[in-house]
């Protein structure tokens, strides 16, 4: 008979964790046999999953116990910095110096959307209650980070692909926005498509993570669904706002001061 926690959730033991790891080991062996070359990445990712999530569990346990708004805000700031750093790494075609605009984007969209959910919709009391604020911020930041990184990468990759067209337009007198606005719009749309697809498929193709977690923890599925709707809508809003903001704050960096597109080979 498996152990249960105070909330009625079936607890996972180290033995069960090892069993789950066994499946990953099987995939690693398969990778070696088929020469897929992913076994090293898989091993590193597995170890990181263990370390990061256990560390997160310990930190959250500590934070929930302390119940301090400063600690919650400090953790949010760290999460936002990590998200901005990840965006920079995932958009290798973006110009140098986008860390600042990514940070600002994550800060504004992350804080606004997280506290809109916890304060206005869920009405958490007190406003900094870590049990709500941190997981919701994690979902908001994680999703908007993906959308922003995708939109930025697409913007700058597409601008390079259309460099000749941009040059021709600038030669005709176009401003940076006039020369690249169409490309930027397409890129922002591309950044939003996974979120919109995810909303459309929720409940049909998959059960979203938050709802799964709540159902596993013993919540009423209908109440869990309400929570999930709120989170999905707010995550979509965060992704849209974040993508628009990050791209608009950074696309101009690919142009010189007098509006010339800096193609590959002309960049310092």
């Amino acid at each position: 008979m498996p152990e249960t926690t105070a909330g009625g959730v079936i607890a996972i033991s180290w033995l069960q964790l090892a069993l789950a790891t066994g499946f990953v080991v099987f995939v690693g062996v398969l990778s070696m046999r088929l020469a897929l070359g992913i076994e090293k990445d898989l091993a590193i990712a597995t170890v990181r999953t263990y370390i990061q999530l256990i560390a997160l569990g310990l930190v959250l346990r500590w934070v929930f116990g302390i119940d301090s708004p400063w600690i919650v805000l400090a953790i949010l700031a760290l999460m936002m910095a990590a998200a901005a750093q990840t965006i920079v790494k995932r958009a290798p075609d973006a110009p140098r110096g986008i860390l600042g605009s990514s940070m600002l984007t994550m800060l504004l969209t992350g804080f606004t959307v997280t506290f809109a959910v916890t304060g206005l919709i869920v009405q958490v009391d007190p406003w900094y209650r870590a049990q709500y604020v941190i997981p919701i911020a994690g979902m908001v930041l994680g999703n908007s980070m993906n959308g922003v990184a995708l939109a930025l990468e697409r913007t700058f990759a597409d601008m390079d692909t259309h460099a000749e067209e941009i040059l021709a337009l600038v030669a005709l007198g176009a401003s940076p926005w006039e020369a690249s606005g169409d490309i930027v719009r397409v890129a922002i749309r591309a950044g939003l498509i996974p979120t919109i697809n995810s909303m459309a498929a929720a409940g049909l193709v998959f059960i979203p993570g938050m709802m799964t977690g709540q159902v596993l923890a013993g919540a009423d599925p209908l109440h869990a669904a309400y929570y999930q709707i709120v989170v999905m809508l707010m995550v979509s809003a965060a992704t849209a706002l974040g993508s628009v903001m990050a791209v608009l704050l950074s696309f101009r960096r690919r142009f010189s001061a007098d509006g010339v597109y800096l193609e590959k080979g002309y960049r310092t």
Partner: peptide, 14 residues
């Protein structure tokens, strides 16, 4: 001469 004005007079066709 501001660059936009310059390019009105000196036009490049790529």
């Amino acid at each position: 001469v501001v660059s936009g004005e310059w390019r009105r007079h000196v036009a490049l066709l790529p």
